[in-house]
Amino acid sequence: MTFDFGFILQVVLKIIPYVPVTLYMAVVSLIIGGALGLLVALARFYQVPGLSQVMTVMITVLKGVPLVLVFLVIFLITSQNFNNVAKMLGLHLQYGDLPMSLLAIIGLSLMAMVGLSEAFRGAFESVKLVQFDAARSLGMTTGQTIRRVLVPQAFPVAFPMIVNMLINLIKGTAIASLVSVVEIFSAATQAASSNYKYFEAYIAAAIIYWAMTILIERGAHWVELQLAKKMERAIS
């Protein structure tokens, strides 16, 4: 077997245009999953009666299965029922009209929600109890305390895990190739389908994933330094 460096470069150039699709799916999922994860973490942190238990069960169920399984279940449920539900609601929509990246976003958002809700809950626990005493003694409401004290103090703690989640989501987008979304991974596979140089194509895909991951980690490191500055004791 000969190794074709030239072909790697070719594939890299060919799949770079699909970087935005991958990033789009990952970032949208991070935002949706982050927002849901925050609500789940808050419900569990404040032990909202009923809601807290429901969330705990939901997280346990989702956490216990592989992403690809969640993804296929979503695909099966939606592909079989979407047309009927759409008709019932009077929508002139067919399943085929939906962008398949939407399915990936749903699956990845659930994954992000599970991971980030745990990350946020851990970060909430790290906020000192006396901070809540102070907020209450000053007459602040729970909502004000969440917005002004809890979330701002928990965010720097959760930040490395949020970045980690973004990287996992980027890698997770490869699963979208299962439902024929053309992203980095499936673009690389397609490029090799004419000459069967899959090994080179996969290396090319790996190079792109590495590059994205390294850039994100560099950026995150810089942000972490900025976040840490105010919490550190000044040297003087």
Binding site: K128, D133, A135, R148
Partner: peptide, 16 residues
């Protein structure tokens, strides 16, 4: 609470 102020042993300033 609006008519009371509290000063804590561990200061309890908002760290952020």
């Amino acid at each position: 609470r609006r008519r009371m102020g509290m000063v804590f042993q561990n200061y309890a300033l908002f760290l952020n």
